[in-house]
Write a protein that binds this DNA or RNA. Structure first.
Lengths: 214, 214
DNA sequence: GTCTATATACCGATAGAC
DNA sequence: GTCTATCGGTATATAGAC
């Protein structure tokens, strides 16, 4: 993995850590994130979260009004995370194609745990119907932002001649769909060897397969 | 869309229709499929299914032992569907790359409704934890089958010189991940114009971008 | 600040009517 | 074959103890 990718991962995790607050509330959110991403909103019990966080069931209600309330808070966090990752990638001192390469390595990395959970939460928030109205609204409103940010990098890459001259929006949508699917697959199989790398992923938008030495 | 893709869609839908049985039980399954794929197992109420199917709540229990029982039945149907689609694509009288092209068009088509729902159900069955043990087992056991079937076509394409000489398993995994992600994106946005086509999707495994006229 | 105990409501499943 | 009524279990959220 490139050193810039590692930097990116660290920045993403740091951003998560600083967004999530402190004290008991932080503990609740961190653990709720894990449980929600595994079981989904409807199937997780407040007692699951409490147990995982090391508190009693009733204690959760000192910090949150309801289960939905916790979920909405997490969706809010997750919604800002995606855009942040792309923006940080854009700040790297690399050509556009390499910025996207590092973003991809970061997003597919085993170490981007918060990223992985976030994508699952947003998945639930946008595909499910048994989700608080407010969570759906937040997720839908923020969905275009990472796409917009990536579009900008893609256009830069098209000018530089590394990226295919298709509609940048469609390329960006294809990109995040691919990443989404890969994260899900990784979660399902937990097989680290038989897994596509960033090089393969980016081939669908690269003009020349660059140099086929992997 | 190619005519072979339309044929494929028809075969997939027919296969679904003939697998699902008849009478009231069929009505329950068809409607449970819709509700489950939207809300997830935990969040759907038996009454949701009953309402959607036009029956009373208690009537469901004349045909199924429990809510889990319905879900397991659907997972069973979904599990056979994916492999069937790939096998049918393989029977098309085309070169390997074109078989995969048609498979892709079929899977991304608006008309492959059963396919879309199936993927969502399998997604739940493999990523969720609050899922009946039997459903997880069925889903996990069947997961490698479409991959195996696609691998065979990919290898054929590599011999024919149309597909990149990467590990066929990894290419197949990447392919289904991509499709999975795209189906989810399509469901989230419902925007038919700004959407990648089969040509773009397949670029990551094509040796030559063939002829770049789209 | 944290836990225990409880009320309130809801849902899955059953039993029995038509 | 289909529906209505109901029981029992379980989870959320509250209230009050320590």
């Amino acid at each position: 993995m490139r050193k810039e990718s590692r930097l990116l991962i660290k920045e993403i995790e740091d951003n998560f850590n600083s967004s999530v607050g402190d004290g008991s509330k932080r503990k609740i959110i961190e653990n709720a994130l894990k449980v929600f991403s595994k079981k989904g909103l409807a199937a997780t019990r407040i007692s699951d979260i409490a147990l995982q966080a090391g508190f009693s069931q009733g204690f959760i209600y000192n910090h949150f009004k309801s289960k939905d309330d916790i979920f909405i808070e997490i969706v809010r966090l997750a919604s800002s995370g995606g855009e942040y990752a792309v923006k940080q990638a854009d700040k790297l001192n690399l050509c556009a194609a390499d910025k996207i390469f590092c973003l991809t390595e970061a997003m597919l990395s085993e170490d981007s745990l918060s990223m992985e959970h976030f994508r699952l939460i947003l998945l639930q928030a946008t595909t499910g119907e048994a989700i608080p109205e407010q969570a759906i609204r937040i997720a839908k409103e923020s969905a275009p932002k990472p796409i917009q940010a990536l579009m900008k990098i893609i256009q830069e890459g098209q000018v530089q001649g590394d990226i295919i001259n298709d509609d940048p929006i469609i390329l960006a949508i294809a990109y995040f769909s691919f990443i989404q699917g890969l994260v899900i697959t990784k979660l399902q199989t937990r097989n680290k060897e038989l897994f596509p790398d960033a090089e393969m992923v980016l081939r669908f938008m690269r003009k020349k397969p660059a140099d086929e030495s992997i």
